[in-house]
Structure formats: C-alpha cells, structure tokens
C-alpha cells in the first residue's frame, strides 16, 4: 500500500503539472501565467537542494573508498581535501572577486579546464585522420565535402580561389542545414513523445522505475 502510494503521488503530480505546464504556453491569461511563473521560480531554491544532494553523495562515496582503502583511494583523499579546502575558503572569506576562492578558481580550475578543452584540437585531428577514408562511395562523398569545407575556412584560399569558398559556404548552408533540419524535426518529435509518455505514466524511468 505504502509502496503504491509512494508511486501514485508523484505520478498524479506529474500528470497534472505536466498538462498544466504544456497548456500555459498557449494561454497568456494571468490566471494561468501567475501560477506557472511561480512554479518556474520554485526551481531556483530546488537547485540548492540538488547541489547539497550531489555534495553529500560525492563526499560519502569518497569517504567510503578511503575507509575501506579501496584501489586508488589516494585519489579520493585528494578529492576530499580539495573539496574541503574550497568550501572552507569560500565560507570564511567569501567568493567575490579578489578572494582566495576566486583566485583558486582563476589560477587552478581555469587553466586545468582550458587545457582539457585545448586537447580537442588534437583529438579532432586524430579522429579525422582515422575517419576520413574513402572506403565506400558514401565515405568518399563525405571526405570530399570535408576537404571543400576545410579549404573554405582558410582566408588565403578564399582570396586565391573564390569558387571553393562559395562551395564551402553552399555545403554548410544548404545540404548541411537540410540534414540538420530533418534530424531536428525527428528529435523534436521524439522529445514530445518522451514528454507525453512521461506525463501519462507510460514511461516511468524518470521516477526511478524500471519500465
């Protein structure tokens, strides 16, 4: 009974609020817009709870790893120490510009992430090197269009051979956009369908249920 209630309450809420939030998109009347706006605003404080959830979950997992001395538990110690340090300096001296927190962010996290991002340049090259092979007719077409688009992006090529730049522009704007549109329409339909299945309770994954 308790089990069934525990499942029914969220499901009924999901059904009512799902239909309401879909309908409010078309109804500008304040009687509908005011409660809708209120619900959207509730999301802000809820976010704070979610952050706490993540924080405790992360900490608990790493504490367990350290206590059990699981494989590579040293990493967990580093994680926990960095976490504690950031929380401590943030709470004591604040997070505004010029504080230790903001300096740590600027001089540690920022360069680390920028480094990760710059790896993309290398990975794009190695992925392109492996993928662009003229194995089949389709792959050859893909390869040729890739070459045209890459050439079109180089300013010197644009000056020396304008038709290549124009072809590159054409490929990006028309065949590429047409394909994207088709995929976007499909994705949108899939998304609406997932939303409807969720609202109607056909798909219960969002409630953590196996279907």
């Amino acid at each position: 009974m308790k089990e069934r209630l525990g499942y029914r309450v969220p499901f009924v809420l999901l059904l009512i609020l799902g239909i309401f939030m879909a309908a409010q998109y078309y109804i500008p009347h304040p009687m509908v817009q005011k409660p809708a706006q209120m619900m959207i605003q509730w999301k802000q404080p809820l976010n704070a709870f979610i952050i706490f959830l993540a924080l405790f979950g992360l900490a608990a997992m790493h504490v367990r790893k350290v206590i059990r001395k699981q494989r590579r538990w040293g990493y967990s110690v580093i994680t926990l120490t960095s976490m504690a340090l950031m929380i401590f300096v943030g709470m004591v001296w604040g997070t505004r510009h010029g504080t230790i927190f903001s300096d740590l962010f600027k001089h540690v996290i920022t360069p680390i992430e920028a480094t990760m991002f710059s790896l993309l340049a290398f990975f794009v090259a190695s992925a392109a090197f492996r993928a662009f092979r003229a194995r089949t007719v389709g792959a050859t077409v893909l390869l040729l269009s890739a070459v045209v688009v890459i050439l079109g992006l180089i300013p010197v090529v644009e000056d020396l051979c304008p038709p290549i730049a124009r072809a590159s522009d054409f490929l990006l704007k028309y065949p590429n956009t047409a394909a994207k549109r088709a995929i976007m329409i499909g994705v949108a339909l899939g998304a609406i369908s997932v939303a409807m299945k969720t609202i109607l309770g056909i798909d219960k994954t969002i409630l953590g249920r196996d279907r």
Binding site: A128, F132, R133, A134, I150, L151
Partner: peptide, 10 residues
C-alpha cells in the same frame, strides 16, 4: 596540416 594528414591516411 589536417588536410595533409587526411591525404596521407587515404
């Protein structure tokens, strides 16, 4: 260089 690499690969 990416183009060159692709050419070499092919």
């Amino acid at each position: 260089s990416l183009l060159a690499l692709i050419a070499v690969g092919n």
